[in-house]
Design a binder for these strands. Structure first.
Length: 152
DNA sequence: GCCAACGTTGGC
DNA sequence: GCCAACGTTGGC
C-alpha cells in the first residue's frame, strides 16, 4: 500500500466538501508528473493526506483513501471548463484521474510551518525547495507521523 | 500582490 | 533538440 499527499485549494474544494460528498473525482490535474502518479502508481486502498494549499495557513487537513482508479477526467472534454484541453480526445484521453473517498477530517490541522519544524519530516518532498507538484508520494513513516499528530 | 521555481510551448 | 518567452503554482 502506498501513501500520498494531494493538494487542493480550500477555496475551490476543501476537506469539508469531501466530508459532505463522501468521495470525489480528482479532476483538473494538468501536470504530467501528477497525472502519472494517479494513472500508474495509485491503487485502490492507498491512503491520502489532504492538503490545503493557498490557505491561511497552508496545512494538512484530513485523510482520504483512493476508492477508484483509471477514470478519464471529463472536464478535459468540456469547452466551458477551466480544465478544458482540446488535445484530449475521447478516443485518446490524455488526463486520467482517481476517485478519493473521505476518511477523516483531522481534529488538529498540521500547518506547513509545523511540518517544517518536525525533524523526521525533513526529507518530505513537500518541504523541498521549489516543489510545486499537486500530488506527491509520502512514506509510511511520514504519513503516520503526521496523522498521529493531527488526530490528537 | 510579489516573485522564485518550475513546466510548457513553439520558432528555429 | 535547443532555448527564450510565457504561464502557473503557491508560499509569503
Amino acid at each position: 500500500m502506498k501513501y500520498w499527499l494531494m493538494k487542493s485549494e480550500p477555496n475551490s474544494y476543501s476537506i469539508d466538501d469531501l466530508q459532505r460528498e463522501g468521495a470525489t473525482g480528482w479532476d483538473g490535474v494538468r501536470n504530467y508528473q501528477a497525472r502519472n502518479f494517479m494513472r500508474d502508481d495509485m491503487k485502490v486502498g492507498d491512503m491520502v493526506l489532504f492538503y490545503h494549499s493557498n490557505a491561511k495557513p497552508p496545512c494538512v487537513a484530513g485523510m482520504g483513501r483512493i476508492s477508484e482508479t483509471g477514470i478519464v477526467d471529463p472536464t478535459a472534454f468540456d469547452p466551458n471548463s477551466d480544465y478544458y484541453d482540446p488535445k484530449s480526445t475521447k478516443d485518446n484521453p490524455r488526463w486520467i484521474m482517481v476517485e478519493v473517498e473521505f476518511v477523516e477530517k483531522f481534529p488538529t490541522y498540521i500547518s506547513l510551518e509545523e511540518l517544517k519544524s518536525i525533524k523526521s519530516l525533513s526529507d518530505m518532498q513537500l518541504l523541498q525547495k521549489g516543489n510545486r507538484l499537486s500530488i506527491l508520494p509520502v512514506t509510511k513513516k511520514q504519513f503516520e507521523t503526521i496523522s498521529n499528530r493531527a488526530s490528537r
